[in-house]
Design a protein around this nucleic acid. Structure first.
Lengths: 123, 123, 123, 123
DNA sequence: GTGGTCTAGACCACA
DNA sequence: GTGGTCTAGACCACA
């Protein structure tokens, strides 16, 4: 379910975060579902436990998952924080970067519009 | 023209790359235009010459700018490499990340569509 | 294994690149083999870590080696990019230069043919 | 006759040297022929006079051309110095580099043999 | 322990 | 004056 590319330039802990968030969005993981323990997941994907722990910490901080002492880690109830200006700015910067990169590959607005649609259809 | 945010998590050399590419896209910098020398730009943005040199080197590698020995650095003629599968995959991953982040802030597809439009209008 | 000639006019980082590629060709280094870390190699050849890092970076760019985050640097699986026109032109220019230089030392075509054979036999 | 690529990574003064040597090899320039003056050549190829002067100096040092005071610069009588060990080693290194680069583009010994032949046929 | 980023500063080749 | 190479050394993210 969760696949890590150890050669990718995105850090493993970030890949874990992204994949888990994707699973939740796709409904593969639902609110209340139990996540594998840090040890379990780290052996599943042959990663360092510290790395998995870091990913879980970050997911907990963003209220995506919840740790219940002695019971384990669970997908949190749907929680959508109101977007801060910082976060919005960050999002815009990312989109800007995509537009610039796309342009430098000869891809136009239409291409990106379609890409956006495709991704939403995947979910 | 080029502004660096030293608090940002994106490395300075990458910020330089992005800003220059943006200037070219907006037409502020045109093919053949001379860029400030490594030393000039480094004092302008109070960064180390090596950092600026690194950014220029990368821009040269991607054929965005050209170095003429002993004369300086210039914006290259428009050059759009055919997009490789790797690059397209990277673009898709980036867009996916945006969609996920947006969703977790309670922003929907419409919001991102508009954001995309806005950015294109800026250029 | 890797020997640097500090008096040579070819930059140290380039010598490192050449020597590593040679080792791979000769089979001294095989795909998947771990390379010495940047720090290790830099002390081995008494060069600055930055210089070694530069060589490794370039080798990574050409997909000769791969970096696995936090684990180290490894020889990549055999990868032969289709030769671009630019690269072929460069190769031809280099060979032309050899022919001219050889001529000016009184060496003829036969000598270069034999030299070419000898080098292939070394590998 | 002499064409300079100001964007090439080989220095202009070296390009001049190579082109002149090539002309001599091809017989376009014969022993005793007068070369354009430093000023003439520098305006012809729109280069800095210092750059042309440097090329001429080097050609003079290698006895490829001769300066006769007050008369000008001339192609020297055929002169083939006995190859020094240093020079031979350099030649071998260059050829080695070609072999390695060629290998990394998937080109074999045959390709290089043919390339060598082609270049000799050009002359 | 691994590589990545950045600074400060020297020296050099080139035009 | 231009960029390229290299050293020395700090600090950081990642695993």
């Amino acid at each position: 379910m969760i696949e890590i590319n150890s050669k990718s330039s995105t850090p493993i802990y970030e890949q874990i975060i992204n994949e888990i968030k994707e699973c939740i969005l796709k409904g593969i993981l639902k609110p209340g579902d139990k996540l594998p323990s840090v040890r379990e997941l780290s052996t599943m994907i042959t990663a360092n436990p510290n790395t998995v722990a870091k990913a879980y910490k970050e997911l907990e901080r963003s209220k995506t998952i919840e740790v219940i002492r002695g019971k384990g880690t669970f997908v949190a109830e749907n929680y959508t924080p109101s977007p801060t200006d910082d976060k919005l700015e960050e999002l815009k910067e990312l989109m800007k970067k995509i537009v610039i990169e796309a342009h430098y590959m000869g891809l136009d607005k239409n291409y990106l519009s379609n890409l956006l649609n495709d991704i939403y259809n995947e979910f």
